[in-house]
Amino acid sequence: MGQFIVRRTLYAIATLFILSLTIFLVVRLTGDPVTLLAEPGAQEEDLAVIRKDWGLDRPLPVQYAAFVKNVLTGELGQSFNYEMPVSTLYFQRLPNSLELALAATLISFLIGIPTGIISAVRVNSVWDHVGKTVALLGLSVPGFWLGLVMILIFSVWLGWLPTSGQGGWRNLIMPAVALGWYFAASLLRLTRSSMLEVLRSEYIKLARLKGLPAFAVIAVHAFKNALIPVLTLAGINLVIMLNAAVIIEVIFAWPGIGRLLYEGIFQRDFPLVQGIVMEAGVMIVVINLLVDILYAYIDPRIRLTR
């Protein structure tokens, strides 16, 4: 088990290195941030001063080294726009995003997993068709459109829910549904196909041959096996919702990380964008590592053979 964790950690470090290089180069393709930092009509000399202040005049390898150093100290550099450490900005916004992401995850679980199981157990029945329709809508209706329609119905026409901002649970419902919608559909599809595969297996046939109640066959023997791929997806979904709920957070004026990223991209705030992407990368890597360890806990084969 120890060796397994060490190896996974080494993979994780390599992944993060490649990510840091990619994001560093990609943000520099978006244009010159100095033109946005300076006042309109600023002279070329003024721009050069700003450029020097932020260290943007240095060669790229030097800038990259500085970025890596900032990541390693955990500070992630100073935001051009806010003139504050990116990590401070990030952790200010994190609780808001976490609140939204957890609510959306809960919604995606409540819709996706039971519907997926019913679809698989009653394959080609009416329930399966309902499930398939939900999945199709979930994957094809964009979350922002759903968000706008919900605002129109529940806020504008019915006046039940506030249109935007953060506050009590009433503010949370619409953004959480709009965000969780797509993920519910993807969980549903994965749960369904995973369950279908397991239900066809010989060990499920043997469980039926033992004369076990249907509940024990499906909920115990089949579900535990079908859960493994679903867990990975759920872990990655959570990270995506946390860090990249850009459009939903903008529509509902939710003060989370997604909106911070949106501002960073518009302002060409290199350290901010780099910092948020790195945080998301670290989270994905850590969640994957946790999911792998959780697998080992569920599946004895992984526990002992690695």
């Binding site: 297996s201 010989e202 043997l206 041959l209 096996n225 084969r301």
Partner: peptide, 15 residues
């Protein structure tokens, strides 16, 4: 009772 063909596949790997 019934004994199935494939002993490798007829036991649940997780229990």
């Amino acid at each position: 009772a019934m004994i199935l063909q494939d002993p490798m596949a007829s036991l649940n790997p997780l229990f």
